Computed example of a mutant assay.
Amino acid sequence: MSGGIYFALAAAAAWALTVVMPLLLPEFPPLLLSSARYGLLGLASFVVAFPALARARHLLTPRDLVRAMALALLGNAGFFVLFTLAIREAGVTLASLIVGLLPITLTLAGRPGHWRGLLMPMGLATGGTLLMSLEGLIAGTHATRGSLLMGLIYALGALASWTLYGTWNARFLQVDRRFDGRLWASLCGIASGVWSLLLYQLWLVTGPAIAADARWQLFWTVTLLVSVIGSVLGGMLWNAASLRLPLAMLAQCVVFETLCAISYGHLLSATWPGLVEGMSLALLSAGMFWALRRLRARPDAMRR
């Protein structure tokens, strides 16, 4: 079980690298960044999976293809679009606050038998999320009431999208043993590459023009690194964890992505967390490790 936790934490650390993209490439719109990321993810996944494609061709059924496309939409393209719309309509604070409830929704979806014992640890993690958003919520937003309502709907949609992805993907890997975590991650990565074509078309229709002095070399370098490490490697590590851990434990490890993303942001900006942010990080960390400890102590009470 410890190996599965390490895989999940490593996956979360890899996923958190996506925070590097908008920080290093602020002149490029999110839709273009995401389209390039998922397009390269599709290509990289194809290269990684190529030696096993002959075997996969005999294993794959039409239902598997639909499942891979659906999971790629729920966990990548669809989630990103909904989250982006939530930020545009209601601001990053409210959107992040809602999506920050993901560890709780995943835990409840995992139906741990001893769920009451997780109330306190999950309460700490929720308190850390609320505290992190406190300053932004107090400052408020210039969005109208209608815009806030739509932003809330989009954020809830993003939360539901990734909860469905995490639940469905983990249970599929644990029940259907035809695919190992590496091959299934590559197949979903290829499906994400297909969805990237739609994101690119959306950017062509709705996206702003790119400045003439845009740093395209840095754009492709950063996008390639994030795609390979944050998406290809991260997906494989997460699937390896999904084969070894119940969903309730996977959910707690998602908190580590937030911790790593904040750490990467401060490293890039050469700053230290403020008092409120430091308290939030402490609460998030305490909640995550407390929950993992309780779940490890009661493996008989957890359902996969």
Results as ranks from 00 to 15, higher is better:
residue 109 A to R: 01
residue 129 T to K: 00
residue 174 Q to K: 09
residue 5 I to N: 14
residue 208 P to A: 10
residue 166 G to V: 05
residue 157 G to C: 04
residue 130 L to R: 05
residue 66 V to P: 02
residue 225 L to C: 03
residue 121 P to N: 11
residue 47 V to Q: 08
residue 149 L to D: 00
residue 95 A to D: 00
residue 148 L to F: 02
residue 116 R to D: 01
residue 304 R to G: 13
residue 94 L to V: 14
residue 26 P to E: 12
residue 88 R to K: 10
residue 235 G to M: 15
residue 178 R to D: 09
residue 81 V to R: 01
residue 291 A to Y: 06
residue 44 A to Q: 07
residue 157 G to A: 06
residue 127 G to A: 15
residue 289 F to S: 10
residue 241 A to P: 04
residue 101 L to Y: 02
residue 54 A to N: 02
residue 158 A to R: 00
residue 137 L to Y: 05
residue 54 A to M: 01
residue 181 G to R: 12
residue 268 L to C: 08
residue 260 C to Q: 06
residue 46 F to P: 04
residue 16 A to R: 08
residue 48 V to A: 08
residue 112 P to A: 12
residue 26 P to L: 10
residue 289 F to C: 04
residue 256 F to V: 13
residue 10 A to H: 04
residue 271 T to K: 13
residue 163 T to R: 10
residue 24 L to Q: 11
residue 106 L to I: 15
residue 17 L to M: 15
residue 85 L to S: 00
residue 256 F to M: 08
residue 185 A to F: 13
residue 102 L to H: 02
residue 114 H to F: 11
residue 6 Y to S: 11
residue 240 A to P: 03
residue 189 G to A: 05
residue 244 R to D: 05
residue 44 A to C: 09
residue 20 V to P: 02
residue 266 H to I: 03
residue 68 A to I: 09
residue 99 V to K: 00
residue 8 A to D: 06
residue 202 L to C: 14
residue 39 G to D: 04
residue 129 T to D: 01
residue 253 C to D: 07
residue 162 W to P: 01
residue 303 R to T: 08
residue 286 A to S: 14
residue 88 R to P: 00
residue 278 G to A: 09
residue 143 A to C: 09
residue 121 P to H: 13
residue 200 Y to M: 15
residue 270 A to Q: 14
residue 274 G to P: 11
residue 62 P to S: 10
residue 267 L to I: 11
residue 94 L to R: 01
residue 167 T to D: 14
residue 128 G to A: 12
residue 137 L to P: 02
residue 172 F to C: 08
residue 55 R to D: 14
residue 94 L to S: 03
residue 221 T to L: 15
residue 259 L to I: 12
residue 211 A to C: 06
residue 187 L to I: 11
residue 20 V to Q: 04
residue 244 R to K: 14
residue 25 L to C: 01
residue 226 V to F: 02
residue 260 C to L: 13
residue 82 L to G: 10
residue 56 A to C: 07
residue 75 G to F: 02
residue 135 E to I: 06
residue 83 F to V: 08
residue 297 A to K: 04
residue 68 A to D: 03
residue 71 L to P: 07
residue 16 A to Y: 09
residue 16 A to K: 08
residue 71 L to N: 10
residue 267 L to N: 04
residue 185 A to Y: 03
residue 236 M to I: 15
residue 66 V to T: 13
residue 93 T to I: 08
residue 113 G to V: 02
residue 100 G to I: 05
residue 93 T to W: 01
residue 74 L to M: 10
residue 5 I to M: 12
residue 265 G to I: 10
residue 31 L to P: 06
residue 61 T to W: 07
residue 164 L to K: 01
residue 160 A to L: 15
residue 83 F to K: 08
residue 70 A to S: 13
residue 131 L to Q: 07
residue 29 P to E: 08
residue 95 A to S: 13
residue 99 V to Q: 01
residue 176 D to C: 08
residue 107 T to D: 03
residue 200 Y to H: 11
residue 98 I to Q: 00
residue 12 A to I: 08
residue 64 D to S: 12
residue 197 L to P: 03
residue 215 R to E: 12
residue 240 A to I: 02
residue 55 R to M: 11
residue 114 H to A: 14
residue 101 L to D: 04
residue 18 T to P: 05
residue 200 Y to Q: 07
residue 174 Q to G: 12
residue 166 G to N: 14
residue 207 G to Y: 01
residue 98 I to F: 00
residue 173 L to P: 04
residue 232 V to Y: 00
residue 201 Q to N: 08
residue 211 A to E: 10
residue 2 S to C: 03
residue 64 D to Q: 10
residue 302 M to L: 15
residue 46 F to K: 07
residue 42 G to P: 06
residue 3 G to V: 05
residue 123 G to W: 05
residue 81 V to I: 14
residue 139 A to T: 09
